[in-house]
Write a protein that binds this DNA or RNA. Sequence first.
RNA 1: GCCCGGGUGGUGAAAUGGCAAACACGGCGGACUCAAAAUCCGCUGCCGGCAACGGCUUGUGGGUUCGAGUCCCACCCCGGGCACCA
Length: 842
Amino acid sequence: MIMDYRPQRIEEKWQRRWAEQNLNSLTDDQLRTAERPFYNLMMFPYPSAEGLHVGNMYAFTGADIYGRWQRLQGEAVFEPIGFDAFGIHSENFALRIGTHPMELIPRNIRNFTRQLTRIGAMYDWNHVVDTTDPSYYRWTQWLFLQLYRAGLAEKKEAAVNWCPSCHTVLANEQVIAGACERCGTTVEQRTLSQWFFTITKYAQRLLDNLKWIDWSETTKKAQENWIGRSEGAEIWFEVDSPWHADPGSAAAVAVADARAYHHGRGEDDEYEQKLQISVFTTRPDTIFGATFLVLAPEHPVVDWVTTDARRAEVEAYRERAAAMDLVTRKKTDKDKTGVFTGAYAINPASGTPVEIWIADYVLMEYGTGAIMAVPGHDERDFEFATQFALPIVRVIAGPGADADSPLREAYVGEGVLVNSGEFDGLHSGEAIGRITDWLAGHGVGDRKVNYRLHDWCISRQRYWGPPIPIIYCDACGIVPVPEQDLPVVLPHVENYKPDESGVSPLARDETWYRVLCPKCGRTGRRETDVSDTFLDSAWYFLRYPSANRDDVVFDRELTRKWLPVHMYIGGNEHAVLHLLYARFITMVLKDLGHIDFEEPFRRFRAHGLLIKEGAKMSKSRGNVVIPDRYIEDWGADTFRTYLMFLGPYQEGGDFRDQGLQGPFGFFSRLWDAVVPVAELGTAQPAGSIEQKLHATIAKVTEDIAALRYNTAIAAMMEYLNAVREGNRNVNRAEVEPLVVLVAPFAPHIAEELWELLGHTQSIFAGANWPSHDPAKTMADTVEFVVQVNGKLRARMAMSRGISQDDAQAAALADENVRKYIDGAQVRKVIFVPDRLLNLVVG
RNA sequence: GCCCGGGUGGUGAAAUGGCAAACACGGCGGACUCAAAAUCCGCUGCCGGCAACGGCUUGUGGGUUCGAGUCCCACCCCGGGCACCA
């Protein structure tokens, strides 16, 4: 009588043994001396109070299988885990339940640690990272100082996204369709002084490297779109109306400092000075159709050009736009609004005067904050021109159209230039370059590339984050905290609730922020904002190997050995946030000489999303899958394997409670097949079993490499079914390789069976991934298909490698085939060796 | 609107241009059982037929090919991301 498969008992036993014998961890010494290092990284979780989510577990299991597989192939696998525990999410939760985050987070981390152990992942508990630990965020602050010194951290007055519910500023990346990513509240505009990392300086490099890094295509595409490179031209329109600016006025300073909105400003006589308005366009070929200009309401030049008659209306419009929240402002389906400034500019190509308008559909943050409107060939401009009865001119003739064809809507396609002076007849594609050259030759334009990417605002007016290591001194200005004074420890502030003031709760603790200036020794004041959580997670992978080092941010030698990360697996929800910032920080560290690579992750693979019985999982629907319960009922091996079996890993899938039965039954049958070890014969696999074994090893190996876990599991099931068929005696050599194949998916049962098979070492230390002989993966006889005119008419067993003549003879001898040929002429024969014969008749 | 995915049995899903539906769930029938659960065996895309077998079938419509779920063109639907980005 054999014992039933009892996963809970086995799993407890092996989890204890792994921990006691440190089987999953590397010592610092092993890290230093490993010969075949493999850094297997997964996205570290935010330790929520709700506990480990099934989405976390899906991600971790897929990554763990890959790591365990690498280890069975002889790699020294480093698979660390940590906690991304700072941030608004934790803080808001702490506020809600009334527990201080300094109490709450360690509790959550303990709970997560328990759960992460229970799922059977191969985590290295010797190298754990916790972003809220001063020994970690000390280096986050160090990182800020490196960027500051390199001129990549700037303090800017900026209109920012303000979440009125969280009372904080959000990065553009954290604004989802105009709402706060965390709480869903509509985001407003506010102007605050903030720290920015100038990631835009790296836009082109971040884009260029996408061409060669080995990442999921979907993720690369998302980054490419986010960076949003546009090639076009900058064109200067001269203002043709009286204009004025007090050279000392705020507007004049803003314009002079910001960028080249104007050229050739004269000394004093304002009417003889030249004022030019710069616009960005991707369609310089349409310049003859630019019948008006539109400036963003915030554009500083508006102050200079607006006529007295129009000033009241313009100001009213600007005030309305400034008060409007960003969602409404950026709604594409609302009616176009705008007002005429009373001023005119000259179209530099046609020489025609054009009206200068302001409208909120032009955004200050993109391009130059001003556009040349070409209503004939741009949908938004067309709508605006129609609304305000502005002239619409056709300058591109598409197929079947000519210079006089009426435009009922904007024609945005390619075509031949018309109404464009000397450029008439040119194809629009060619005209882009020719007209840009012409404009450049006349000093009124130039080639220009724009990016949608914005600088990264890292300031947060909140409590739960690393304080930004800056001191403000009345005498010295901005003074970075000296590196030897790090960390700037986050004080325990009792009332950490944010308020309307827009100032961090740290500003309430005067004993904390009142410090002496490190430069001059006089009284200074600490920066009271903390940094964005995304900064914590932008470099954690660099810290893991050096997690136990207090003296350096990362050990140079260890970093060279283990990085870039060999395999990174995670969710695509981080395609443009975390993953872009991590690349940026890595590039900066390379440029500053701290590391010698500029891309942090050799390979990145995005896993898919889990849904539950056809619906998205959500707390409100009450269909969230809690791993603990399932693990308790079925065991971690079954749960892990089911998660991987329910669909292609990189596409996600549908979680159904009933589905767990499949993998559970598989393991039960595997158990029953292997446990009666005394009865196992010693004969080597032969015949169809041998062939099936080799094919299975090949299939499972290929599938794991490609993250096709679902079909790998199916192949193992098929093999076990074949071994069990006919109630025959099972031989050890038939099942021992299967136990190894199963190990990455179901490590506990694999360990137990491996031990029952007489091995004394852990399967992950003692076993080799089975190899296969390609020649043995194929059977001697093949099932051969005979078609007549492409329709299946017979299947016949034939020996491998049969010649076309022999196959054809056999086919023609078949009664059913003969019936369909029916004496007709065989005109053509298609022969696919060992597969198919198609007889074309008639 | 743009950029990614995806659309195949009752369900989750397989399928280098070459046997559509592997593997699994569920269902049905049987064995074991006093009975039930568990387990084991068989059947299970749809239509016709006692059967051999035949016809139909991968969102829709065209096309390429000896042969298309797979390639090409047009379109519809679902999921995700971006979006007055000039």
